[in-house]
Design a protein around this nucleic acid. Structure first.
Lengths: 363, 363
DNA sequence: GCGTTAAATGTAAGCGCTTACATTTTTTCA
DNA sequence: TGAAAAAATGTAAGCGCTTACATTTAACGC
């Protein structure tokens, strides 16, 4: 209704031109560059320069212009600016899910660091579907993203092709593989999980189980499971005996998986979860089943998000330096955008946080 | 670097026109409407129509065009489209914080419902600062938001002025006041909290305390505190004796406040928290102090977010129908945008969720 | 004081779309 | 069958900016 009316108001162009009028707004409602120029008595080019490269305008003029900008509350039209400048100072990211907090901390840091450099973040979600990721990448590019952050390495080749063809810089995060050519700021999921699993077997556990996110199109999930298997092999445990349940990251899914695991014939003494969300669900299920954690069964997480400390017992988990990862990824992007050479990349360090959900196996 | 080069590449206009050429891309890297038009052998207008009002194009032509669109992976440039159409099918929202999950569920539903109607959501955060909210509103408008959702009623008058001047529809959410003229989809924070507080006093509690978000520029927080006071008055409790600690929503802040509360001379027997995040912190602090909840002290939350069930003991709290709120707010916005008349507004219902963090006072 | 150079500002051509209006093609029906 | 109406398509004018290039103004050196 209101928005409809606005269209009918837009008639000034047919009204007598009053160049000297002090009416500050253009007819569309939003003041434009031209409004500012007129009011300040300069050309639009000068106004533009005041906003984008202030030192190319003499101080007296600049002050006058900025005063007008402030007075009429001018904000440059983003679309027009993007169109003309072919640059938006916007960085896009496609995360697999917004449903839980796994990406929150890292993204927050990513955004903060980008903001520090004058960039804005655009977030899209792929729901763990490769086609949707492709679509979101296109959308982000259409929206003018100057660069992209993507999670993990594995995706449709087309995504990489498009990015390369358009010359859009990108960084991969949340994962790191030795020898991967794409610029990545992340950690080695396999090594991290292997370290934890090794600790678990070191405690004497021989009957392990894993609750993982679906591995099909998720290299991080797959690597984590591989890490468990690595440790099992080292400990002489037959990996065929390690049950792996796949289920999307959600507390209730973790709980359901745990129930299945504990209703089976040979109950595991330790359940390694693909992340903290699943682990929290597992703990809740165990509690509901009347099992003590870690007395009757040990449970571990991955990520070390806030909830890991809230649950009782608090989770022994792998701490991922999400904030650092987000910050570095942002710095990397800024460097790519500025053409600053970036040094060699090293994986981030993760470490085990010993809390109480993991203990020796019951006898 | 790359993006610089693009300027020098952009020379196709001066090259011999090869209308029949199969080179699908324009020089800038992204295919444009014109590329599609050329390849499909139609005008740009027709391509545009295929995308925006398919029924105005004969099927044969449409198929041919859409085939090309698909083949070269064309995605319309958002900025150009916004500029030309003066409409973006984008809705903006400014939430006070992204730091915790209080807005997550509602926003998710909001976004889903918007998506169902072909709209995209743009989220910005004000960090509970009115000036920043003003700025974010401007930014969102500059980015072409067709409509806005805002949280709570209280803000700089200028925000409302701008919105009205530009004819941008908006809805207020997360709050409801009888007689407020602005379209609002929310609940009455005061009444909701009063109901819970009444239940607390009904249990026999006489020494209450409140841990609230800073009330200064947050009408929801203020209303919730007022609700507690209402119930106290009804129960004949002197409201001067009700300690109110203000601290931003964060688990650790809730814990710190709780510690302060319990180290005072007259310890409260029940602590009503402004939301679940603070309540979780309070529970943790109580536990750390060796106090049993609710044995030694009762604690209540507000919102009923996921964490309320995770914490031990699970929180007695107020369930806010966030999903319903988000959905309805989205429907309201769509109606406003379409000019569909909207019926009279009614507040959403909240209700107490009885779990275990609240009990009778210890004697 | 004046030519020269540098700094400040202005002019205007797009960026990639949508859409009012003009033109062409197809359909309809006397 | 052909004129009128309807449908399909094309033409081109912007939308609000940035920026290459042109012009004007200020600063400088002798």
């Amino acid at each position: 209704m209101r928005s409809r009316l606005a269209f009918y108001w837009r008639t000034s162009k047919t009204l007598p031109k009053q160049t000297t009028s002090q009416r500050p707004k253009s007819s569309s409602g939003s003041p434009t560059l031209e409004d500012v120029a007129r009011l300040a008595g300069v050309s639009t080019a000068t106004v533009s320069r005041c906003l984008n490269s202030p030192d190319r305008v003499v101080e007296r003029t600049r002050n006058r212009v900025l005063q007008v900008v402030h007075d009429i509350g001018y904000a440059p039209n983003f679309g027009a600016r993007a169109l003309a400048a072919r640059r938006t100072n916007t960085v896009g990211v496609v995360i697999p899910t917004m449903e839980n907090a796994i990406f929150a901390r890292g993204l927050q840091a990513f955004q903060e660091e980008l903001g520090r450099h004058g960039f804005t973040l655009l977030v899209a979600s792929s729901s763990y579907q490769p086609e949707l990721e492709m679509l979101q990448v296109r959308t982000l590019l259409a929206r003018g993203a100057d660069a992209l952050m993507l999670i993990g390495f594995e995706r449709q080749q087309e995504v990489y092709d498009i990015l390369d063809r358009r010359g859009v810089p990108y960084v991969i995060s949340w994962a790191y593989h030795e020898g991967q050519e794409a610029p990545a700021i992340g950690f080695d999921n396999r090594l991290a999980m292997a370290e934890l699993a090794r600790h678990v077997t070191g405690l004497g556990h021989r009957r392990l189980a894993v609750i993982s996110a679906p591995q099909a199109e998720n290299d991080r999930a797959r690597d984590r499971v591989l890490g468990v298997m690595d440790a099992c092999r080292e400990a002489g445990i037959n990996t065929d005996g390690v049950t792996v349940i796949e289920t999307p990251y959600a507390i209730e899914n973790g709980a359901a998986a745990m129930e299945r695991l504990m209703s089976g014939a040979s109950r595991p003494t330790a359940v390694l979860c693909g992340n903290d969300v699943l682990a929290v669900g597992a703990v809740r299920a165990a509690t509901r089943l009347g099992l003590r954690v870690p007395g009757d069964v040990s449970i571990t997480g991955f990520d070390d998000i806030e909830i890991a400390q809230i649950i009782e017992p608090p989770l022994t988990t792998i701490h991922v330096p999400h904030r650092q990862m987000g910050r570095q990824a942002a710095q990397m992007i800024v460097s790519l955008l500025h053409g600053t050479p970036v040094g060699p990349l090293r994986p981030l360090d993760t470490h085990i946080v010993h809390r109480t959900s993991l203990g020796p196996p019951h006898t």
